[in-house]
Computed example of a mutant assay.
Amino acid sequence: MISIATWNINSVRLRMPLVERYLAEHAPDVLCLQEIKTVAELFPAEAFAALGYTYQAVHGQKGYHGVATVSRIPITEVSRHDWQANGEARHVGVRIDGCGVELHNVYIPAGGDEPDREVNPKFGQKLDFLARMTDWASAIDQPTIICGDFNIAPLESDVWSHKALLKVVSHTPIEVETLAAFQAAHGFVDVGRQLIPAPERSYSWWSYRAKDWRANDKGRRLDHIWASPDVAAKASAHRVFEDARDWEKCSDHVPLITEFDL
Rank of each mutant, 00 (worst) to 15 (best):
R80C: 02
V92I: 15
K122H: 14
A164D: 15
G111I: 12
K163L: 13
L179A: 04
D128G: 08
R72W: 01
G124C: 05
S71W: 01
G93I: 00
S138C: 02
R95D: 09
S71M: 03
L166A: 04
A110N: 15
S157L: 04
A110R: 12
S138H: 08
I145R: 02
H171W: 05
L165K: 04
D82F: 05
Q183V: 10
A139L: 08
D141L: 00
N105H: 11
H91C: 11
W136A: 01
K126C: 15
D97A: 06
E177T: 13
P154K: 04
I75E: 00
I108F: 14
K62R: 13
V70N: 01
E102P: 00
V169R: 09
I96G: 04
G63W: 14
R80K: 13
C99Y: 06
Y64V: 05
A180C: 07
C99L: 06
F150V: 07
H104D: 12
D141F: 00
G148T: 12
V70M: 01
D116Q: 07
A110S: 14
I146L: 15
N86Q: 12
I146V: 15
G124K: 05
A181V: 09
A85L: 08
G148P: 04
E118D: 14
K163S: 13
L127S: 08
D128Q: 14
D149P: 07
E118V: 08
S170N: 12
A153I: 07
S161E: 02
D158V: 06
F182S: 07
A153G: 05
E175N: 10
P143V: 02
V159A: 10
G66P: 08
G111F: 11
T144M: 04
E118K: 06
V168F: 01
N120L: 11
P109Y: 13
Y107P: 04
E88C: 03
D97T: 09
L155Y: 14
G124W: 10
D116F: 11
N151K: 10
H104T: 09
T178L: 08
R80F: 01
T144K: 00
D113E: 15
E88Q: 15
E156I: 04
E118Q: 09
A164W: 08
A139N: 00
F123W: 14
I108R: 07
H65E: 13
C147T: 15
F129T: 01
R80I: 14
F123A: 06
P143F: 07
K122A: 15
P115N: 11
T144R: 00
E88Y: 10
A110H: 14
I75V: 13
H171E: 10
G87K: 03
L165G: 02
S161Q: 05
S71C: 06
